[in-house]
Computed example of a mutant assay.
Amino acid sequence: MKKIAIVTLSILAISFTSCKNDKKDSENSEMDNTNEEMVSSNEVSKKVSFKLESKSDSQATGDVAFSQKGDMVMFEASLSGLKPGMHAIHIHENADCSAADGKSAGGHWNPTMQDHGKWGSQSGYHKGDIGNFRVDEDGTGSVSMQTNEWCIGCGDNTKDILGKSIIVHEGQDDFKSQPSGDAGARMSCGGIIE
């Protein structure tokens, strides 16, 4: 009878130890996965930067950077060589800046076929309607924004900015004239390409 009790206790002890180790391994695995997700969501997953070249006989140039972290895309541009005042900046549909007037970049990027308007407007706006920015007396200005309505190389035709371009205009976007806001000549252009 003592032998049966010892064997039974031995089997129970082995089973308990095995279950405890399985649970510990499972918890460690879950923690590893959580840490990987936290690390990846805090890292910049994609980045594209480029220079803007002068168009329409202007001196306007600049540096542009897009970076994606998770589902958010950050846009930053530093510009120079512009007349003081307000200027429009948009994403256009082609990464082609070969024309002297910048028109090879096509119209505003508008994959959802909305009316032109101010970014975030209830009445609609193009995915390329970034807006206006101020240029100081020294001819420099900057603009930045972030959104989850864009992505870098995700393949979603309604969000992917790769293969498009940035255009800086001579004047200010009025946010109502169709289809482009009556912002005037294209002063600089740069293709959003990797």
Rank of each mutant, 00 (worst) to 15 (best):
A100S: 13
K69V: 10
E93M: 05
G191I: 03
A60L: 04
K83C: 07
Y125C: 03
A65M: 15
N157W: 02
C97G: 14
K23N: 13
N33A: 09
A183L: 03
G102H: 04
E36Y: 02
V39W: 04
S177Q: 15
M1K: 15
E36C: 00
K159D: 01
E36N: 12
S104Q: 02
H92C: 02
G128E: 00
N110V: 01
I166Y: 08
I4T: 04
M1N: 15
K46Y: 10
S144A: 11
S56C: 08
I6V: 13
M72L: 12
S56W: 10
G106M: 14
G81P: 00
S15G: 06
R134N: 08
D22S: 15
K176R: 07
Q122L: 11
G181N: 01
M187K: 08
K103P: 00
E93Y: 00
I11K: 02
S29Q: 09
K69W: 08
H108Y: 13
N148E: 15
D173P: 03
C97D: 13
P111E: 07
G62Y: 06
G117L: 14
Q146E: 10
G153V: 05
I89E: 00
Q68E: 15
A100F: 10
K46S: 13
D156L: 10
S104L: 05
K46W: 06
V48G: 04
H126M: 08
S78Q: 15
C151F: 01
D25C: 11
E53A: 00
K176W: 15
H108E: 13
D71P: 06
A100E: 10
E93Q: 09
H90V: 15
K127G: 00
E76A: 14
F66H: 04
T61R: 08
K23Y: 12
T34F: 10
C19D: 03
Q122E: 08
A105V: 04
H87L: 06
N94P: 05
S26C: 14
C151A: 14
K103Q: 15
G120H: 07
W119R: 10
N42M: 14
D138K: 10
Q146A: 11
K46L: 11
K159G: 10
S18N: 11
A13D: 05
S29D: 07
K20P: 01
G62V: 06
T34I: 15
K69F: 01
N94G: 07
F175T: 07
N110H: 08
T34D: 14
H87M: 03
K159T: 12
S104I: 11
L79M: 13
G81V: 08
V64Y: 01
S56R: 04
G102E: 07
I6T: 12
S40K: 10
Q172F: 01
S18T: 04
K46G: 11
Q172I: 05
H108P: 08
G141W: 02
G124A: 10
N94F: 12
M31Q: 14
G62W: 06
G107S: 07
N157D: 12
T8S: 11
K118Y: 04
F133H: 01
V48D: 04
V48M: 13
G191Q: 05
N110T: 06
F50E: 06
M31A: 12
S56H: 11
E36F: 02
I130A: 09
A65L: 06
